[in-house]
Amino acid sequence: MSNLKSIRKWLMLALLAAGTHSGAFAGNLLDDTFFRDGKYYVVAGILIIIFLVLFIFLIRLDRKVTKLEKEQKS
């Protein structure tokens, strides 16, 4: 339950951050990063997404194996 609460807290913070940014800074932020020169940041973004998905898989697998180990012991 506390897990869910902390997730909600972080989500609120992220939304708040995004909200304050989008007005004054988002245009500049995007121009300075993903639209800059050769758009090289987009390539980095794509690779980060792929590895995020792989890490999410690893976390899920880790949880399952931990559960199995606990059951094995009991």
């Binding site: 050769g38 987009v42 390539v43 794509i46 792929i50």
Partner: peptide
């Protein structure tokens, strides 16, 4: 419009 992102072909399409 693609610039350097053309190399994403090697990352996005293999998925």
């Amino acid at each position: 419009t693609l610039y350097e992102t053309i190399r994403n072909l090697n990352f996005h399409v293999p998925m």
